[in-house]
Design a protein around this nucleic acid. Structure first.
Ligand SMILES: [Mg+2]
Ligand SMILES: [Mg+2]
Length: 138
RNA sequence: ACAU
DNA sequence: AAATGT
């Protein structure tokens, strides 16, 4: 069933690797937080998905929220393992530090990170809507 | 294959 | 079509 409680995060990039950012919304899509990184820094899509989770968990612990949804299987695994797989070279040290901070905060505050089931529920509310390029009129 |  | 990941 589509969730009734919790907040959501999602990422955007221009290119992959590329510039990008992430945002946090409630389940209605109201924006609660966001961060876009400097346009001179290129990172992977998954880097930004993890950034989104970090923003969401920070918001959650300050606001008594216990569930954070993401659509990123990869970023969820990074938090669970407290690190990315050994083949991930780009931003590795940053990713380890961030995954550990998220995992520590989740443990301390009892926050759960759950998978948003896009195939059943549609796009996550925090999605940027960049994938469906508008219907072609002309 | 699955998730982006 | 290409790239990032488990
Ligand atoms: Mg996403
Ligand atoms: Mg999206």
């Amino acid at each position: 069933m589509k969730p009734e409680f919790g907040i959501t995060s999602d990422a955007w990039t221009s290119g992959n690797p590329g510039i990008g950012g992430a945002r946090v919304t409630d389940l209605k899509g109201n924006q609660l937080d966001f961060h876009n990184t400097p346009a001179t820094e290129l990172h992977s899509n998954n880097f930004f998905e993890l950034l989104g989770i970090s923003l969401a968990v920070r918001y959650a612990l300050k606001n008594g929220i216990k569930v954070v949804y993401t659509d990123s299987q990869t970023a969820m695994a990074w938090v669970r393992n407290r690190m990315p797989g050994k083949n991930v070279k780009m931003d590795r040290d940053m990713l380890i530090a961030r995954a550990n901070l998220i995992a520590d905060r989740c443990e301390k505050y009892g926050i759960e990170i759950k998978k948003w089931n896009t195939s059943e529920w549609g796009e996550i509310p925090s999605d940027y809507g960049r994938k469906s390029g508008g219907k072609k009129v002309a």
